[in-house]
């Protein structure tokens, strides 16, 4: 049995394996970042549709959420890769991954936004409208800024969940952080060092993110202080 130092060397340093980890980390971050941006856009639009007076828009939004939330993420990723986006030749896997995870995240973000908007007392809307502001002005200047503050914790949670979910990107042969660790495991016949190393990196990402959003939340809470 090799010493811990030797094992670490073999798994992380030798043959520039750390580059593989770094590449995986980069891909994981890129997918998660792209997907949260896309998901936030989709989620915002869906949330407004969900709260609209138009039954068709409400219905579309509801259907979207029901389907997305009812099907496993891995399966959605594979459906996008092998079915829906397959006809578009030469589309980079990264783009496919971002679309898949973004479309998925959008459903969850929509529900977060909807709950946030609905948590703002109706009196706020009435006060805005009674001053002569129209529906969109009231939404933009009064309801959304307050809702935004209210959703930070759950939104942060969605981002953290999303980072971890990207670990299934290996199913479409993307070299994300998890896949990189698995490749090293295969090459070195050492399982625990690469897997543990990637686990630590995921943990650092999610902890850092939680801290970042925690700071944001405290800063936004300024007006609540009594």
């Amino acid at each position: 049995m090799a010493s811990l130092g030797e094992q670490l060397y073999t798994c992380l340093i030798a043959k520039e394996r750390w580059l593989l980890i770094l590449e995986g980390l980069g891909n994981t971050l890129l997918i998660a970042l792209g997907a949260i941006i896309l998901g936030t856009l989709i989620g915002g639009i869906l949330a407004l549709m969900r709260l609209s007076n138009n039954w068709l828009l409400r219905g579309i939004s509801y259907l979207y959420i029901t389907i997305i939330r009812g099907v496993p993420m891995v399966l959605q990723l594979m459906i996008f890769y092998f079915v829906i986006l397959a006809p578009i030749k030469g589309m980079p896997k990264m783009v496919i991954a971002i679309i898949s995870f973004g479309v998925n995240s959008g459903a969850y973000v929509c529900e977060i936004f909807r709950a946030g908007i609905q948590s703002i007392p109706v009196g706020q809307t009435e006060a805005g409208r009674s001053l002569g502001l129209n529906k969109w002005q009231t939404l933009g200047y009064i309801v959304l800024p307050q809702a935004f503050k209210a959703v930070i914790p759950t939104y942060a949670n969605e981002f953290i969940v999303l980072i971890k979910e990207t670990a299934v990107a290996g199913y479409i042969a993307m070299r994300d952080l998890t896949k990189a660790a698995d490749l090293i495991r295969n090459a070195t016949f050492n399982a625990w060092i690469p897997l543990l190393a990637s686990a630590v990196i995921y943990l650092c990402l999610t902890l850092g993110l939680a801290k970042l959003f925690g700071t944001l939340e405290r800063r936004m809470a300024r007006s609540d202080r009594r």
């Binding site: 007392p121 009196g123 706020q124 009435e126 409208r129 009064i142 007006s223």
Partner: peptide, 22 residues
């Protein structure tokens, strides 16, 4: 209605000030 409401001030039981604004 938005234009008409500009000319009708309304005061609520629960004040309904905007908490995120000074």
């Amino acid at each position: 209605i938005d234009r008409l409401r500009q000319k009708m001030g309304m005061v609520f039981q629960q004040f309904n000030l905007f908490p995120h604004l000074t």
